[in-house]
Design a protein around this nucleic acid. Structure first.
Ligand SMILES: [Mn+2]
Ligand SMILES: [Mn+2]
Ligand SMILES: [Zn+2]
Ligand SMILES: [Zn+2]
Lengths: 137, 137
DNA sequence: GACTAAATGCACTACCGTTGCATAAACTTA
DNA sequence: TAAGTTTATGCAACGGTAGTGCATTTAGTC
């Protein structure tokens, strides 16, 4: 049993062929990717299966969704030790308007918000748009 | 000529009947509203016209778009004196997961972001999800 | 191997944003 | 005012994405 299979089982996810492939693919990418991008990365890939794979991954705390404002949801592997399924790992996301890539800035945590009276926060989404390091010369 | 007509002309927007109605509608709402909500607010309303009206309003700095993560773009009137068309008015937005309403927290400005080397910011979107004051008893 | 539960493939729906184009309205200028 | 020009509107259609229902296959369980 490979390390990935072990990892998935430990997360209560049956390590099917497709799931392992998706995990491996996400692991090679250090950017967040959308469903269509994953679909195109494989020759024979069923969109629905990928969709449900990512949904499962998210529920079990393997990936987290990113809404970068482009209209297509992105996914990225959670950091090792991240307990997304229990408590949020609220880090900043960056979307480059030039190369169109979305990056997790996991080191840049979001500090607790100051809200008006009687507003209670459950989740925070912070996306910065601009030019990424690769596109800045 | 009414005050609204004057205001629109000053923003270089022809004050047509529909545009005045849309402006008035947005003015009554203190929350951000989506295209479909505006459509349903009028008996005889053409979705495309509303869409283009809002687009024009946005280009001329009358409204600003809000991506609250629900998948439907919301619009809200800019504050008096806000120069959205020139420079951004980066305030916080709040989406209530109970009543599903999105609010501009115009008093809560977004402070400049601390980014990694060679990342340059052009725009920031900060949305807090939770329970709003009306829904908190 | 028989049984059961989960994963997959395929078809199809719903919704939203967006565009093209013909028509109608409004503004301009002679 | 009438002709000409720009702008706004109405209608139809497209494209993309998320999501669901259901039959079939695959994988664990006994
Ligand atoms: Mn992330
Ligand atoms: Mn706002
Ligand atoms: Zn880039
Ligand atoms: Zn509420």
């Amino acid at each position: 049993m490979t390390a990935i299979e072990q990892f998935l089982e430990q997360k209560n996810i049956r390590p099917t062929a497709m799931r392992i492939l998706v995990y491996q693919f996400l692991d090679t990418k250090e950017i967040a990717v959308g469903l269509t991008a994953i679909e195109h990365a494989f020759d024979k890939a069923e969109r629905t299966t990928l969709y449900r794979t990512l949904k499962t991954f998210e529920e079990k705390g393997v990936v987290h969704q990113i809404d970068d404002g482009t209209g297509t949801t992105k996914y990225a592997l959670c950091e090792a030790g991240c307990n997304c399924d229990v408590e949020q790992d609220l880090h900043l996301h960056f979307h480059c308007t030039k190369c169109n890539e979305t990056t997790c800035l996991t080191d840049h945590k979001i500090q607790p918000m100051n809200l008006p009276d009687n507003f209670t926060a459950e989740d925070v989404n912070l996306v910065v748009k601009g030019i990424c390091d690769k596109c800045n010369d």
